[in-house]
C-alpha cells in the first residue's frame, strides 16, 4: 500500500499547487501531463516491480490455468467494479481494440489461491467507447471511499483521459503486496 499512498500523496501535492488556478485552462492540462507519468497506466506497467512471469503464465486467455477468467469469482477480480474487457475483445491486461487505456486506476490486493500470495491488481478502465458487452462484476475487497482515492471503485477511472466514456475494466498484476 505504501507505493499507492506515495503516488497519491504526490498527486495531491501537485494538485494543491495547480488547482487554485481555476478556469485558466492550462492548469489541468499541465497537471495531467505531469501526473500521467506517475500513475499506473499502460505505458508505465513494464517498469513496475512485478513478477514478469505472471504476465506470461496467467495472461493467456482461454488457457485459464488459475481459474475461470470470465467469472466474477476469479481471484484477480476481488475489488473490480465494471465490465470484463476480456469478454469483449480485450484480455486480462489489454483494452479492446479502438479503446483508450485509462491513465489512472484503482488498485486491489487479491490473494492468488494457487500460490497463496497477495498481489496488487491495477483495475484500469478502458475508455472512449460504449459500455462493452462483458460481464458486469462488482466486488469490493479492501475498497475504500474517495478519501483513499487509489482504492476507490465507484468512480470513473477514465476521468483523466481525453475520452472519458467508460468501456470496460482490466485486471493487471502490478506487484506483490508484500514486496
Amino acid at each position: 500500500m505504501a507505493m499507492i499512498d506515495t503516488i497519491f500523496e504526490w498527486l495531491d501535492r501537485g494538485a494543491e499547487k495547480s488547482s487554485r488556478r481555476i478556469a485558466q485552462g492550462t492548469g489541468r492540462r499541465s497537471f495531467l501531463t505531469k501526473a500521467g507519468a506517475a500513475m499506473l497506466g499502460g505505458s508505465l506497467l513494464p517498469m513496475l516491480p512485478f513478477d514478469r512471469n505472471f504476465g506470461q503464465a496467467f495472461a493467456q486467455e482461454g488457457a485459464s490455468p488459475d481459474g475461470d477468467q470470465t467469472s466474477c469469482d476469479y481471484w484477480r477480480y476481488c475489488a473490480l467494479d465494471g465490465n470484463l474487457c476480456n469478454e469483449c475483445g480485450g484480455t486480462l491486461n489489454q483494452c479492446p481494440p479502438g479503446s483508450e487505456a485509462s491513465k489512472v486506476s484503482w488498485v486491489g490486493t487479491c490473494r492468488n489461491p494457487n500460490d497463496e500470495k497477495d498481489y496488487l491488481v491495477s483495475y484500469n478502465d478502458c475508455c472512449g467507447k460504449a459500455t462493452c458487452a462483458g460481464s458486469f462484476c462488482f466486488t469490493s475487497e479492501g475498497e475504500r471511499p474517495g478519501y483513499r482515492m487509489g482504492l476507490y471503485n465507484d468512480i470513473n477511472w477514465c476521468m483523466a483521459n481525453d475520452s472519458k466514456g467508460y468501456h470496460c475494466t482490466v485486471a493487471v498484476l502490478v506487484g506483490l503486496a508484500d514486496a
Binding site: D12, S19, A23, G146, M149
Partner: peptide, 23 residues
C-alpha cells in the same frame, strides 16, 4: 471534483458563476 486529485468548486448560485476551486 476528482481528476483524480480532489478539490471542491464553489459556485455562487445567484451570480450563476464559479467563485473558486478549493484544493
Amino acid at each position: 471534483n476528482a481528476t483524480p486529485a480532489t478539490s471542491v468548486t464553489v459556485v455562487d448560485v445567484a451570480a450563476g458563476s464559479v467563485v473558486q476551486e478549493v484544493a
